[in-house]
């Protein structure tokens, strides 16, 4: 249970980090919070030759909230982003990420790049239609939309030599509510299944659009656009989800859970959207 040997690099700025990453290519791995990478090293599931430790890149420790959304830098830890209170769905997702102590070190962008199919933050990014910014030495950074970013279990569009420098979570439109529900065997474990929902109401407070993202039921977050037909949430999810069974839960149970959680998430999001619409009307 010790990491295999590697060369440790501690660049002082982004330019240096990108140079080192470019040199290491596929033999390099970026270390930010380390709350997923170090267990993988300890269990010898990963054995990179070069670890590029970005913990000195304070320029990436940023949470910027604007009218269009929130941009989270690669070194912003879960706890800090949650404390900033800048996005309702992000806050709801972060409360479900592991335990408070893990959230003191783990980073939001790191969770996205890790791309665990049962993790909450990829679903939050996917349901909101957010994006990840990837930088490489000697080239302009590129923004990859969530729909293209998650490519498989623990796989993303990040190429060797690239660093995910930030992620953008779009702001919610008016009269919008969100919710995140999940079921896990133990508090703080990865979920057996989970669903987050974003619901927007029209001027007459009827549901105009409802979008869900499900976790634990496929290789990447499953986004389901319900349009105005939010009452079909459970059926719509069960028609599209293709979960695998494992020692923790059978495929059939996961499918059942996904449906129940979809209904709960969308109902809660509708309630919150009504509450928010009332507050917005009063303001």
């Amino acid at each position: 249970m010790k990491p295999p040997p590697f060369s440790h690099h501690a660049p002082r700025d982004l330019g240096e980090a990108l140079e080192v990453l470019a040199g290491a290519g596929p033999r390099g791995k970026v270390l930010a919070g380390g709350q997923s990478l170090i267990p993988m090293l300890n269990m010898r599931l990963a054995a990179p030759e070069h670890v590029i430790d970005i913990n000195r890149l304070e320029e990436l420790d940023t949470v910027e909230a604007g009218p269009d959304g929130v941009t989270v830098g690669a070194l912003a830890r879960h706890a800090r982003v949650a404390r900033a209170g800048v996005h309702p769905l992000l806050g709801q997702a972060l409360r479900l990420v592991a335990h408070p102590v893990i959230r003191n070190r783990g980073t939001v962008v790191g969770s996205l790049v890790h791309a665990d199919p049962a993790a909450e933050l990829p679903a939050a990014l996917a349901v909101l239609g957010g994006s990840v910014r990837l930088a490489r030495a000697g080239a302009a950074p590129r923004d990859v939309a969530a729909a293209e970013f998650f490519t498989g279990p623990m796989e993303s569009a990040l190429r060797p030599g690239e660093l995910a420098v930030s992620a953008r979570f779009p702001a919610l439109p008016p009269r919008t509510g969100t919710a995140f529900t999940e079921v896990s065997r133990r508090h703080g474990d990865y979920a057996l299944a989970g669903v987050c929902a974003v619901v927007t109401l029209d001027d007459d407070l009827r549901v105009a659009s409802a979008r869900l993202a499900c976790i634990g039921v496929g290789p990447v977050p499953l986004v389901v656009d319900l349009g105005a037909d939010w009452k079909r949430a459970a059926d719509a999810v069960r028609e599209r989800a293709e979960p695998d069974g494992d020692v923790h839960a059978t495929a059939a149970y996961r499918l059942h859970l996904a449906g129940v959680l979809a209904r709960r998430a969308v109902e809660q999001a509708v309630e919150r959207a009504i509450g928010r619409a009332a507050r917005e009307a009063a303001a």
């Binding site: 990491p3 440790h8 501690a10 270390l31 670890v51 430790d53 003191n104 070190r105």
Partner: peptide, 11 residues
């Protein structure tokens, strides 16, 4: 509070 087993000493 942090996990010392998930933190590299050099970091």
């Amino acid at each position: 509070p942090v996990r010392s087993c998930l933190t590299l000493a050099v970091t």
